[in-house]
Design a protein around this nucleic acid. Structure first.
Length: 645
RNA sequence: GCCGAUGUAGCUCAGUUGGUCAGAGCAGCUGAUUUGUAAUCAGCAGGUCGGGGGUUCGACUCCCUCCAUCGGCUCCA
């Protein structure tokens, strides 16, 4: 007999070799029907996997991550079986679950290809296999047996994977006519899968390496109920409506022109206003935090980037140098602001008393991004960083780092970004030649970041090997409408550039010392930040930011003069408004301006012109009733101040 | 750059197997209407069907190629 302990602390005894499903049945048949996996002593088990030792147990239903994971993992296997049916000789790469669904990377037989037109028949086959309620069987196999099987099959991908596994840990899962190398866990049988949708098809390099063969990746998602699939598809549609590219076009915020060049955004008047307001907001915060604005040109001598190391690292993959016609001197489009800022530091001798020196610039930079990677405003070839470089003494590093975190958090809070994660990117200690700088400096920088993040209570994910080549960093990531993660704010420690630009200051000991540099950009880039802001708000920007705060709607032409008077008064109160004096009915003007997401709609007619008042309607809400112009102005002022507090 | 898809009027889209199929709604313009909280009515104008090449008696429709866009992959100072 073995002892099984439950999350509520109760302990029960079972026969050794029992499984989670039997245990669940002993509690209630309802529970047994709903669960799809279980965590047994910390490891996620298939429901039918034998338990042979005293264990803790926690059941997983569809609602939790482990449950979905098993569900989608089995779905991936069933999809693979369907693919084997339609494409005999197909070779399988990996087929993991992802946040929403699963994919499988496959190598199609010579001459075969697959397109979205084939999805229908594959989905049907998957459901057919699912309906067969085929049991999913786990089997432990020896390494040699596993290798043998895939050698016979001629599947070099699985052989490569198996070779990296240790003997004794290799398991196969089978259902119906299909067997796959897999760690599990899986559903007890395929019958759980009631709905499936293949979503897209993509090329993916084997093991993510560009030099390897490109496999075909098929993305799909599945559900235990048809209704859940339908709900998911509705959700996807809703997300598409928030897409910043769509809203950006509708609200006339930005545009692209293939004549101007791909990945080179054009800020339209309203978008430019929005961006300018964000910039002014940050400038104000930065002045309060002791930053000094600087400005630099858009090009710099190639030598500058040779000195900084950027040319060696990125030169070949960048926009190529431009040359002066007579002398043939080479200049690069500025890909980074930091080398310029280093030279600003170097314009005069610095004392320890001058530090920290915080130089800030909204600097536009140009980087060559590959054609297929461009994406709306989030991935472009020319963008403006809300950049600043803090030159400080080593003993000031931690404190300065924490102050920067404070700025980022303040900005996120003001803009209501609560759903973000922070990532600490450290170097890969096994691949040191990828990075420049001494071990000692790297260790100092990495520990400063970890300490600052911990002290500020940030929940961080640590990524080894994701550091910039010159130093570790702390990134703030948020998700867009479709769940894709984007990096916004970034804070990076750099011992390298001060070295390369020979930055120095005279210390209190009358000796020369080298400062440390922090690169930081709370927004990241204005382009990307605005993109994420659009998706976050669905275009309903906070009142203080929005380009147009109110629209004055005269009931008829007769009241255009009163509307102009209102406009002038509101202008005096710095309320951004305009008159919709089109020859249309009120209902029409309301509708159009609601769709433009104007926060306040001000209807004026006979009653209002007599009372010196407005009938106020708030966007997305109904009529707020009549108020005087003064009352409305106070209301706006109050709201803006509250939002910015 | 790679894999897959898409490209018809400013926007959203329709266009049967290649043969009056170049269309609709919205936006725009003109006129009428003078309007009270999510679409007033009528008329007009708008496109070398992404560019180029080919097949054909004939191409929006089939093929090739280039460009751009979309979903991924790789990359991201």
């Amino acid at each position: 007999m073995i002892k099984i302990s439950f999350p509520d602390g109760k302990v029960r005894e079972y026969e050794s070799g029992t499984n989670s499903l039997t245990i669940a049945e002993s509690i209630s048949s309802g529970l047994a029907r709903e669960i799809i996996a279980a965590t047994v002593s910390g490891e996620v088990y298939d429901l039918t996997r034998a338990i042979t030792a005293d264990s803790s147990i926690k059941f997983h239903k569809w609602d939790d991550e482990e449950g979905k994971h098993a569900f989608w993992h089995t779905s991936a296997h069933v999809m693979a079986e369907a693919l084997e049916f339609f494409y005999p000789g197909i070779k399988l790469g990996i087929g993991p679950t992802i946040e929403n669904g699963f994919y499988y990377d496959v190598d199609l037989p010579e001459g075969e290809s697959i397109s979205e037109n084939d999805f229908g028949k594959i989905e049907q086959k998957i459901l057919e296999i699912a309906r067969g309620k085929h049991e999913v069987v786990r089997r432990e196999v020896s390494k040699s047996e596993a290798l043998d099987i895939y050698t016979k099959k001629g599947d070099q991908y699985k052989i490569e994977l198996i070779n990296e596994l240790e003997d004794g840990t290799i398991t196969f899962y089978s259902q119906n006519n299909f067997t796959d190398l897999c760690r599990g866990p899986h559903l007890p049988d395929t019958g759980f899968i009631k709905a499936v949708k293949l979503l897209s098809i993509a090329g993916a390099y084997w093991r993510g390496n560009e030099k390897n063969k490109q496999l075909t990746r098929i993305y799909g998602i599945s559900f235990p109920k048809q209704k859940l699939l339908e709900e998911y598809l509705v959700l996807l549609e809703e997300a598409k409506k928030r897409d910043h590219r769509k809203i950006g076009k509708e609200l006339e915020l930005f545009a692209f022109s293939s004549k101007v060049g791909m990945g080179l955004p054009l800020w339209l008047p309203k978008g430019a206003q929005l961006r300018e307001r964000l910039e002014n907001f940050l400038k104000k915060v930065q002045v309060e935090h002791g930053y000094l604005p600087v400005m630099c040109p858009h090009i710099g001598q190639k030598e500058l980037y040779v000195t900084s190391g950027h040319y060696e690292k990125y030169g070949k993959d960048s926009f190529q140098p431009i040359q002066t016609p007579a002398e043939g001197e080479e200049f690069l489009l500025k890909p980074m602001n930091c080398p310029h800022h280093c030279e600003i530091y170097n314009t005069k001798p610095r004392s320890y008393r001058d530090l920290p020196l915080r130089l800030a610039e909204f600097g536009t930079v140009y980087r060559y991004e590959q054609h297929g990677e461009l994406h709306g405003l989030t991935r472009v070839r020319g963008f403006t960083q809300d950049d600043a470089h803090i030159f400080c003494r080593p003993d000031q590093l931690l404190d300065e780092f924490k102050k920067v975190i404070d700025i980022v958090l303040y900005i996120f809070k003001t803009l209501d970004f609560s759903d973000f994660v922070t990532q600490v990117s450290l170097r890969d200690p096994n691949d040191k030649q990828k990075y420049i700088g001494s071990d000692e400096n790297w260790e100092k920088a990495e520990s400063a970041i970890m300490e600052a993040a911990a002290e500020k209570g940030l929940k961080t994910v640590v990524e080894i090997g994701e550091a910039a080549f010159y130093g570790p960093k702390l990134d703030f990531m948020v998700k867009d409408a479709l769940g894709r993660k984007w990096q916004l704010g970034t804070i990076q420690v750099d011992y390298n550039l001060p070295e390369r630009f020979e930055l120095e200051y005279k210390g209190s000991d009358n000796e020369m010392h080298r400062p440390v540099m922090i690169h930081r950009a709370p927004f990241g880039s204005m382009e990307r930040f605005v993109a994420v802001l659009i998706e976050h708000t669905a275009g309903k920007f906070p009142l203080w930011l929005t380009p147009e705060q109110a629209v004055i709607i005269p009931v008829s032409e007769k009241f255009n003069d009163y509307a102009k008077k209102v406009l002038n008064l509101l202008n005096n109160y710095d309320i951004r408004s305009f008159i919709d004096d089109r020859n249309e009915k009120v209902g029409r003007k309301i509708r159009d301006n609601e769709l433009k997401k104007i926060p306040y709609l001000l209807v004026v007619g006979e009653k209002e012109s007599e009372n010196n008042s407005l009938s106020v309607r708030k966007q997305g809400e109904s009529d707020l009733g009549e108020m005087t112009i003064q009352e409305f102005a106070d209301k706006i002022k109050f709201e803006v101040e509250n939002l910015l507090a």
